[in-house]
Design a protein around this nucleic acid. Structure first.
Lengths: 158, 158
DNA sequence: GCGACTCACTTCATATTTTGAAGTGAGTCT
DNA sequence: AGACTCACTTCAAAATATGAAGTGAGTCGC
């Protein structure tokens, strides 16, 4: 199965992975959440080659995750902005950050520090149950697949 | 900059992306969170080629995200299990799922349904502030970079 | 009005990765 | 004995990524 066949998958994780689950797409998203908007900034701060950056931005634009807009006619200048769809990928980047801060950082002081505007405290957002509000992890839930998803996986068994 | 240079990055997001931010690694993780443990199951249910699956599992094992263990001497049989480190990647997969459920699913019934064991309710975990417990998103936080991280990004500017 | 510079890319040759089909080897099952 | 399962490995072809160099519109300083 080729990577792009994932878009046909019933599983929404698979389809999301197909859209943004590439190294440089994730790096571009990180960088945009840190505030970069311009091509050159993205290129230097992510370390991505201009060729690939250009390809990735086109894809992210086609997927309506980023928007390309002109902010000056003369000289002609553009910038890339996250759409609502794009901003909604924030938890993915935060989840990656949390894992890295916990398991890869040796200094104890994470390279990116977040402050919650509303409460003014330094925060490290984590997953909570939407029903009861308690923290949740892999072990605190049970999984149920929709019939369609179960069939999809069964079909792959042939 | 090549993909593997990301591991030298100060940013823990970059380093995490380098470790697990590949299409098939993420698919393997999804599948393991759904309960698959055996090579063949992973292969068929993710759709990954056996060659690549083998490579990815070796990498995930080297990174101590999964553990390979024998569950039968004769016949010789192995299974792969998530370590604690691996289980801690759950929020990444959930964040991908949430995004996909919101933006890609047209049916309204997500293919994977989670139930919180403690409260018995169907749940869709989301990010909450670790300090005050309120829900947080991209717009509700301010970002501060550590001096090292700021330097790292500045250096890339040369 | 010339040369240097910035931004936002594109082009191209080379290198690396992925894909998919086929094969392997230990062992069980009938 | 033959078919089958599991857990892979091998290999060639195809797809993708990398990195250096180039482009073109425009500005800035002298």
């Amino acid at each position: 199965m080729s990577r792009s066949d994932l878009s046909q998958n019933v599983c929404t994780v698979a389809r999301t992975v197909e859209m943004v689950g590439e190294t440089w797409s994730l790096m571009i998203l990180r960088e945009m959440f840190l505030g970069s908007r311009r091509f050159d900034d993205l290129q230097r701060r992510t370390g991505c080659s201009p060729h690939l950056l250009s390809q990735r931005l086109k894809r992210l634009e086609a997927e309506q995750i980023v928007e390309r807009r002109s902010y000056s006619e003369r000289p002609p200048r553009h910038e890339y902005r996250l759409t609502e769809r794009g901003r909604d990928l924030w938890p993915v980047v935060i989840a990656l950050k949390n894992w890295g801060d916990r398991w890869l950082d040796k200094t104890g002081a994470p390279p990116i520090e977040l402050t919650h505007k509303a409460c003014g405290q330094i925060t490290r957002p984590s997953m909570h149950c939407s029903a009861c509000g308690e923290p949740v992890d892999a072990r605190s839930v049970t999984v149920r697949l929709s019939p369609k998803m179960a069939r999809d996986r069964a079909t792959a068994d042939r």
